[in-house]
Amino acid sequence: MQPLHIPDGFLSSTIALLFWLASAVMVGLAARRSERGLGERQIPLMGVMAAFIFAAQMLNFPVAGGTSGHFLGGALAAILLGPWAGILVMTAVIAVQALLFQDGGLLAMGANIFNMGVVTALVGYGLYRLGRNWPPAARLAWAGLAGWAATMSSALLTALQLWLSGTIALQVVVPAMLGVHAFIGLGEGAITVAALGFIERVRPDLQPRARGGLAWTWGGLLLALATVMLAPLASAHPDGLERVAQDFGFFTLAQDGPYQLLAGYRLPFLGDTPLSTVLASAIGALAVFGVAFWLGRSLRGES
């Protein structure tokens, strides 16, 4: 189960309708653009790609202690197909998940589309676009970081929506969501890197081309930075409630091992200060970049 799919009943009607509106605007723009610019050939491609994302979410890899890493695919779709097509593809995926599998609610679908479609396209593609002309290993690594950051941004937005709806206390939901998704995002980023590396090697002609303007880069950068800046909230009140959320399965993915390294997004020796949190986030980001860079280089090495 993916904790990012908000079911109905968890969002207040105001928040749900607000994000429906925002998603409708973005999806409408995406539909207009693809009708005008891409032509009929793009429709079967986007449809089959949406089915690809759906099927790719079945791919998992064992991590430790019975947990496994999953793949969400929003960033990869935006990088490979361009941001507008990526939004449409993810919207279709989320709609089918809600309609067919009751994975995520109908009223909450606007928020789900925004979190997993629009935000991942913005951060995933926006960041990737910044580094698209870099040397291959750095570019792949950067794509991995983009995948990780996209997951984190959408997790944070989900947390804020739940909090604004009065469903979950802020002190619980932000560290819980970011803590879990820091690791889900690691898998996401690594698979994005490996998949992109594989595709570049096997079908170099399919190299992702720029399909969005500079605004995507700025939007993506801003959103990613906002995520890092908002992370101090995660350490605002390390409360007993955090433990409750842990006991009730919110933390199932991150129960053991690595989570303790930067527990609650704080560096032990700096204590409970915003600086500590920001530094912890930066270290996390650097670690992801390092892993992704190494993966990218070893992938190139094989070709």
Binding site: F61, F71, S298
Partner: peptide, 8 residues
């Protein structure tokens, strides 16, 4: 992870 990425 790399194997899974290749699958993807």
């Amino acid at each position: 992870v790399r194997t899974t990425g290749h699958l993807a």
